[in-house]
Amino acid sequence: MNKLNKKITPGQIGLFTFLGLFALAQLFPLVWLFNYSLHKSGNLFGKKVFELPDPPQWGNYVRAWTDGRIVQYFSNTLIVVFFSITLIMAFSFMLAYACARMKWKLRSAIYSIVLLGMVIPIHTTLLPNFMWFKQFGLIDTRIGIIIPYIAFNMAFSVLMFTGFLQSVPYAMEESAYMEGAGLGRILISIIAPMAKSGFVTVGIMAFLNCWNEFIMANTFLASEPKRTLPFAIIRFEGQYSSDYAVQFACMILVAIIPIIIYFTFSKRVIAGVTAGSVKG
C-alpha cells in the first residue's frame, strides 16, 4: 500500500496527471454548469472558454428556487422515495429470509422467478401499465408509482439479502426458536441487526434508483402537484427557454440534494455499492 514515497518521481507526476485528467473529465462539466449559473445569460455567448462571474448573480437561484417550485417537487420526491425504500427493504428482507432459511416446495422456483425481475427492462411495462393501472385508478397517484418502484427493486434486493443471510450464523435464531420466540420478534430483534450492512447496501441502491428515476415518473405522474424533482428541469426549460443561467441554477438545485447526501455518507455509499457489486 505504501507505494507513495516522499520524493516525487516523473512516474508519479505521470500518475497524478492521469488521475487528475479523469477527475477533471468527471467534475469539470459540473463546475462549468455551476459557474455559468451565476452569470447573466448573455455572458454565455462570450468568446472566453471559462470566465468567473463578476459579480455573481445569486438572484438566478432565487428565481430558480421559487419559479422552479423546488420545495414542492422535492417534497413529492421525498414522499415517494421514503415509502418505496422502506417497503423495498421490508418486503425483500422477508422474501429473502423465506428463501434462505425456510424449507418449502416452491422455494427455488419462486427464487428464480424473483431474480428474473432483474433482467426485465422497466420500459417494457410502460405501455401496458398505463392501461392496467388505469383500471385500478392508480394512474397519476403516488401509490401508482411506488408499486412499480418496489417491484423493480425486489430482485436485486432479494439477491443481496440472501447473500447476507447466508453469512449470518444460524445458532442465534435457533436458540431463540427453542425458547419459543415468535418469528416476527426474531426477524426484527435478532436477524435484522446482524444483517445491518445488508440494509445499508439495499437502502442506498434503492435510494439511488428511486431518487433518480425519470421515465416512469414522467409517464405516470401527469398532474403538476405530484410531479417529482427531475421534472422541475424539464418544465423550467420550457418556461425560461432563453434564460440559460436561471436554467442552470435550477439544474444545480436539483443536483445539490443528492450531492450533499452523497458527500455526507460517501464512505457508506461507496462501501455499499462496492459490497453490492461483489455480491451482485
Binding site: A23, Q26, L27, P29, P230, I233, M251, V254, P258, I259
Partner: peptide, 19 residues
C-alpha cells in the same frame, strides 16, 4: 478519488443529459 469519480453516477439522468 473514488468518491469524486462516482459523482456523475449519483445524479439524475435529467441533470446529466441537460448538462
Amino acid at each position: 478519488l473514488r468518491t469524486i469519480y462516482f459523482v456523475p453516477a449519483i445524479l439524475t439522468v435529467v441533470v446529466i443529459t441537460k448538462l
